[in-house]
């Protein structure tokens, strides 16, 4: 089973029915997979803070939501994460492509990669780093944890994790 299938199976098993996304090369497969699932309304957004707003709206309507994005967008998302998601205590799984790690061909991506964990740490966002394919085994538990504690939670998925997918 590919990790893309697994991500979507776990989202659906945890009643996530609304997903917004901004694409990344590493996330192409998972975004393609969303489109095949009737249980999920996929709403591409133009910027990640906009997506965080969409997810907040879905949550207010009683539905579980999630965002799929690249780590380079953490900067533009901070205000929305802090003053909306955290301030109003809303759950938000953030499936994040962790660009700029080993195997990265684009130097610029490393510039943001070196800030990624420090920013998430500073924001007190629980963060899980998927480096090996078997790390996906924790995804279901991470989703349950997110909806239990009503917090944004980051899942960083690096190039080694995506290898072969």
């Amino acid at each position: 089973m590919s990790v893309n299938t697994r991500f979507l199976d776990d989202f659906i098993a945890n009643d996530v029915s609304f997903i917004t996304s901004v694409p990344c090369k590493q996330l192409a497969g998972v975004i393609e997979e969303i489109e095949t699932r009737e249980e999920i309304y996929h709403i591409p957004c133009n910027k990640e803070d906009e997506g965080i707003g969409l997810c907040a709206g879905a949550f207010l309507g009683g539905k579980r939501s999630a965002i799929i994005m690249q780590n380079t967008a953490i900067g533009v998302s901070i205000n929305a994460l802090v003053t909306l998601t955290q301030f109003y205590r809303m759950p938000l799984p953030m499936l994040i492509s962790y660009r700029g790690e080993l195997g990265e061909p684009v130097a610029c991506q490393v510039e943001m990669a070196i800030h990624t964990k420090a920013l998430l740490d500073r924001l007190l966002i629980p963060t899980y780093h998927f480096h090996k394919e078997e790390d996906i085994e924790e995804f279901d538990a991470i989703l349950k944890h997110t909806f239990m504690c009503n917090k944004p939670v980051a899942i960083l998925t690096d190039a080694s994790f995506w290898k072969g997918n």
Binding site: L54, A58, G61
Partner: peptide, 18 residues
């Protein structure tokens, strides 16, 4: 009480799910 500009996004997300 915070977050400039997201009222329309929140409104759309809410409208789409109920």
């Amino acid at each position: 009480l915070g977050t400039m500009g997201l009222a329309s996004s929140i409104g759309l997300g809410l409208s789409l799910v109920q």
